[in-house]
């Protein structure tokens, strides 16, 4: 088991290094950092000084090593456009994105599993059929149109919920949260629904098909033969065995959550990392772009590591590898 975890760790490290290389190449070769930081009017001497201070005269491998060392400590240089440290920009906007992403993941997971199990158990009921057809249409709808549609219904017509921003936030240390105020919670509803929707349909369809598969397996028939109540078979035996592929996909979908958070944050003017990144792309703010890239890669590596650990917890066969068996 230790070897298994170590191997996942190593793979994650390799991915991080590869992404760091791409980020470094962008950082160093797209646009001229010196011109962008000093402006067009700077004297040649100022430029030469800054070039020396940033270490841009050193050999490229050395620069890359320094970039990785700085990045590991959370230092991504200074934003060309806003003139502030990229790390403080990210820290400032991180809570908004994390609250949005985590809540929509929970929403998608809970509702998706519930609907998927229902659709599998009541396979021929009209509600199950309706849910399945709706999910098909949902897959073809672009995220930003779902967001706009929700804004139209709940903010323009019904006037129940705000259409943009985070509402009032409460500051706890460096973290700002919208979870403790009424307007903050209200502001979360529409973005969470928008971001969670695609995930929800995917998880639901997956749970349904896996569950139908598992319900045909031999161990379910034997459980029935032993006279275990149907409810207990469905939830204790079948659902538990459908969870492994569901968790894999859900973990890998986190990339999708982050990507569509970019879109969702733009639709709802949500002050998170995705909106920061879109702005950086619009104005070619390369330090912010490469920092965001590193951040996303880090989240990826972290979640795939967590998915691996959850495997070990859920699947007894992975505990105690052959090497450790007595």
């Amino acid at each position: 088991m230790l070897a298994y975890i170590l191997r996942s760790l190593m793979q994650g490290l390799v991915v991080m290094l590869a992404v760091a290389f791409i980020a470094f190449t962008m950082f160093r070769f797209v646009g001229d950092p010196v011109v962008n930081m000093l402006g067009q009017e700077a004297t040649l001497q100022d430029r030469a000084e800054l070039t020396e201070r940033l270490g841009l005269n050193d050999p490229v491998p050395l620069q890359f090593a320094r970039f990785v060392a700085d990045a590991a400590q959370g230092d991504f240089g200074v934003s060309w456009r806003q003139g502030r440290k990229v790390s403080s920009l990210i820290v400032e906007r991180l809570p908004a994105t994390v609250e949005l992403a985590v809540l929509s993941a929970i929403f998608a997971f809970v509702v998706g599993i519930a609907l998927g199990v229902y659709a599998a158990i009541r396979r021929d009921g009209w509600i199950a059929n309706l849910v399945m057809s709706l999910s098909l249409i949902g897959v073809s709808l672009p995220t930003f149109l779902i967001g706009i549609g929700l804004i139209y219904i709940f903010a323009v017509e019904l006037r129940w919920l705000p259409s943009f921003g985070r509402g009032d936030t409460v500051r706890i240390g460096w973290w700002t949260t919208g979870l403790l105020t009424v307007s903050g919670l209200k502001s979360l509803v529409l973005p969470v629904l928008t971001l969670g929707f695609l995930q929800l349909t995917l998880i639901m369809r997956l749970v349904r098909s896996e569950m139908l598969e598992v319900m045909r397996a031999d161990f379910i028939r034997f459980a029935r033969a032993r006279g275990i109540p149907e409810r207990k078979i469905e939830f204790r035996h079948a659902l538990r065995n459908t969870m492994i592929p569901v968790i894999t996909i859900a973990g890998l979908q986190l990339g999708g959550v982050i990507a569509f958070a970019i879109v969702t944050e733009t639709v709802f003017q949500w002050p998170g990392l995705g909106a920061l990144f879109v702005n950086a792309v619009q104005f070619v703010d390369v330090p912010v772009m490469s920092a965001y890239l590193m951040f996303v890669a880090f989240v990826f590596v972290l979640t795939s590591l967590m998915v691996d650990l959850i495997y070990v917890a859920l699947d007894p066969r992975l505990r105690g590898s052959p090497a450790m068996a007595k």
């Binding site: 646009g31 990507a259 990144f277 879109v278 792309v281 390369v286």
Partner: peptide
């Protein structure tokens, strides 16, 4: 593999940003 694990929209945004810079 690496490309597939990154969402398409993110890759497209990065390529777009880099092209803008160049």
């Amino acid at each position: 593999d690496i490309q597939l694990s990154f969402p398409a929209i993110l890759v497209a945004l990065l390529v777009f940003g880099v092209a803008r810079g160049l």
